[in-house]
Nucleic acid binder design. Sequence first.
DNA 1: GGCTTGATTGAGACTGAGTATCGACAACGC
DNA 2: GCGTTGTCGATACTCAGTCTCAATCAAGCC
Lengths: 145, 145
Amino acid sequence: MVDPSALLTALDRSAYRMTEPRRAVAQLIADRHGHFSAADLVGDARSRRMGIGRATIFRTLDVLAELELVERIDLPSGEHAYVVCEPVHHHHVVCSACGRSDDIDDAGLRAVVRDVARRTGYRIDDHRLELFGMCPSCQSLEVPA
Amino acid sequence: MVDPSALLTALDRSAYRMTEPRRAVAQLIADRHGHFSAADLVGDARSRRMGIGRATIFRTLDVLAELELVERIDLPSGEHAYVVCEPVHHHHVVCSACGRSDDIDDAGLRAVVRDVARRTGYRIDDHRLELFGMCPSCQSLEVPA
DNA sequence: GGCTTGATTGAGACTGAGTATCGACAACGC
DNA sequence: GCGTTGTCGATACTCAGTCTCAATCAAGCC
């Protein structure tokens, strides 16, 4: 449940064209809670009878990922999913119960990366950190043991 | 290029049966350098005319992953791959050039995870860290700019 | 407002990874 | 050796994601 206008203005500013299907996909994403897969959006579009092609949804996700407005993550199950996020380098904590995801910054990790580089001799160009757990609201809903 | 006997003894000690196809898959994995995909092994098995079914390779990889003898990783491209590793919790640095992968321990990361938990209120149950870069030997082969 | 041009679209064929099913077979404990 | 039961290969299947192509449309230009 995000404001779709952030996606739309960013799209407008980019070299990509602002089209009806893209607006629609932005809306679908904005209406979603937490992470979602391309298949989720395809299902949403179909159930709302929006007449958007499957290929268009994949293409639009590529565009949004290119613009760093959404990021592709890998769930522990191995499935691919997307989360809406700010266009700066960061990582995600994902709630395994409700799918909500929050951004976290790179701060502490930078030291870890430097340390690994020193110890292994690798030159580290890229990294990916994903944290999975339970968000505060899902914790409070948990049945006490 | 690993010694396959580590895989075999671990398999032998487990509740799983030691079968000819599993021995063969262990050998294929041992003959590999760096990370590999299920499709790589299928290709290897075919080119050596080993008569091992595709499904068997997937199943054997599942078994080995279950025993934590191999780990499934996600390459930056989004493809799935496997690396041989020690059966304790740890992470990987993967060389983008040659595919070699080294294990790194959890040490510095634990503090990062704790810190994120404190700041976000999430209870962190699981995490995944993957580092990509260039290993020392590939660096030394690089054409000087 | 119309025109032009090239990006974008939906439909549907296609590819390739991974899974499910099933009858045959083989590992292992007795 | 024998029976149980896990595992096998073949094959059909599902599902994510890509490719192709003719039709359409956004956006800049006049």
